[in-house]
Design a protein around this nucleic acid. Structure first.
Lengths: 113, 113
DNA sequence: ATCATTAATCGTAATTTTACGATTGATATG
DNA sequence: CATATCAATCGTAAAATTACGATTAATGAT
């Protein structure tokens, strides 16, 4: 049953706020930033060489990939014995739009302090 | 002395990758997203009412503010017995530019998988 | 069928994050 | 000066993150 103790009440944040935090959190590690850049740059979506490219243990990379997959920013398809990862363009765009919108709230410059 | 053990080698990631991760990490919690939105929306930069607004303990908010201050996204000035927080427009813009540039790497759409 | 390769998962450890209440230090106000 | 108010900090605790090596499961090749 496990009453949620110190946890955030359901209604404390808006869905938008949670979404923004979720996406940015996924970007909040240099390894994941690098993985995404690598996936963009190697137009054909390479897979296990990510491990070589980044220079972290295979299991660690797997974890980071899982994280990125969880937020939907990437996807992987099995290809023989290896897995081919690539950007999920739809969700990437969704994130982009959401964050750019968030960034644009500064349009009314407010000088203070 | 403390030899860095499992830590990331200095050169594993570029400065840009680290910067991106740093900023996004700072955005990676709904409370901090909400705080930033609140600071934008209340044009005059209000301070302790952030606590009321967000609905977390005062010490917790203080921690989140510290985090945001650390990345330079906000700044606070003492005003009598209270502290007035507001967006640091310069650094906010820096972050915006950095991330928007990061987002734009998708311009060459790559269909795969 | 055996073996090699690849990537996910497991088990674990260290560190960081998040949250809270209590305390402290600073500044107003009586 | 005494007292109230505000926000930072301290001390904890619980949970999440990050990293690794070892194991496992799946596939391909011999």
């Amino acid at each position: 049953m496990k009453a949620k103790l110190k946890t955030t009440p359901e209604n404390r944040f808006t869905e938008e706020q949670n979404q923004i935090a979720l996406f940015t959190k996924a970007l909040g590690h240099p390894a994941r930033v690098k993985i995404l850049q690598y996936l963009f740059e190697t137009k054909s979506c390479v897979c296990g060489d990510i491990v070589d490219e980044i220079g972290l243990a295979q299991s660690t990379i797997s974890q980071h990939l899982k994280e990125l997959k969880k937020t939907g920013l990437i996807q992987g398809t099995v290809e023989g014995t290896s897995v081919c990862y690539c950007i999920n363009n739809e969700n990437w765009t969704k994130m982009k739009d959401l964050l750019v919108e968030f960034f644009e709230q500064d349009l009314i410059k407010t000088d203070c302090c």
